[in-house]
Design a protein around this nucleic acid. Structure first.
Lengths: 190, 190
DNA sequence: ACTAACATGTTAGTCGCTAACATTTTGGGG
DNA sequence: CCCCAAAATGTTAGCGACTAACATGTTAGT
């Protein structure tokens, strides 16, 4: 059984990541060298890079894209922004307080270092592409500019809201903040 | 007159930038080292960094934010998205074909290297903040989430449109593409 | 036990970027 | 005209992220 191999790899990976996040929290992202992380995890810096392509990637992984895709694509509203808004609202009902708190910590860390911040926006593009496809559905042909625009708008609103939440807002307020922010994209006065 | 000083500095800066862009166009961003740029410009790599804080900054500067701010804030529409759309449309009337072509080249270069792409999204945040302030106007107090969301949406739509334009679209089509994309944020069926 | 695949360490190198210090250039006042 | 101070530049050395080459160990299947 070579699953033993995969297990060990996973544990090593987790150990490196935990060491890194711990050190980052204690001393700040820029003050912690890869060498130090590797030492704390009991490996060499080469091994570190075998598990994570860059120092930034230790922090970066975002698991929420699949969630969004799932609950947004299940929605049947005709207006795309409403689909996104209600889909995300539903996705939030499947997250507990611990998940929110963890997301908040990671977001704060990401905002703390310039090089990480830059990568946040790269992640945003991934989410945006995903949303484009969800909104475009199974319709054939290239994704029209209008759809891409709407996906871009929703994604940017999401990122902005999460940022504002991580900086200021109360920990449990994210769902209502997202709702409010996306609602702002709707026509101003009915 | 020590303005002579500033003049020389400006010319050195321009020489470095031209050398860099030339080399980037020829060999690709990653294949060109700072050392090589400096040599081509007849300076040392330390001098390079005295003029540009990072290698990325040689490519990056974006002069269009003030334009946007000016023409959007002059608009009087009540709906913020309409203000942005018409303001930008007006700003475009003050740009000639050469400016568009240059912007297109620079955009393509930015999209070609990952490290540059990442910085694009950081620039986007600057534009977003600017738009937030323009839309918020002179009203006192912190900028509400709804305003930030709309600014984020418009900025993301802009970036997405410029990206699509740089990749595919005909050189002169940017204004109409921006118009179309921003219009997509309006309610779907009147 | 033998071997082949795989994970890891060692070493040395490149490149972006910074700091300390020496050197040159330039403008102005005696 | 010469000397001085400030500004611009070069030299050198170093740090840290990241890569490649090679050696070593460790495990899995025969």
């Amino acid at each position: 059984m070579s699953d033993w191999r995969a297990d060990k790899r996973a544990r090593t990976r987790a150990r490196i990541q935990e060491s890194a996040l711990d050190l980052f929290a204690r001393y700040g992202y820029d003050q912690v060298t890869v060498e130090r992380i590797a030492a704390a995890a009991g490996v060499s810096h080469t091994t570190f890079f075998r598990y994570f392509p860059t120092k930034e990637d230790v922090v970066l992984r975002d698991d929420y894209d699949p969630l969004i895709a799932r609950y947004v694509s299940a929605r049947t509203e005709q207006d795309p922004v409403e689909r996104v808004r209600l889909g995300i609202a539903e996705a939030f009902t499947h997250l507990d307080a611990a998940a929110l708190a963890a997301a908040r910590d990671r977001t704060r860390l990401m905002l703390s270092a310039p090089s990480l911040r830059a990568r946040v926006w790269e992640n945003q593009v991934a989410t945006q592409r995903l949303l484009e496809e969800v909104l475009h559905g199974s319709t054939p042909g290239p994704i029209p500019l209008a759809t891409r625009a709407i996906a871009a708008a929703c994604t940017a609103v999401l990122t902005t809201t999460v940022t504002a939440w991580a900086e200021d807002g109360p920990t449990e307020a994210l769902p209502s903040m997202v709702d409010e922010a996306l609602a702002a994209l709707r026509p101003p006065t009915p």
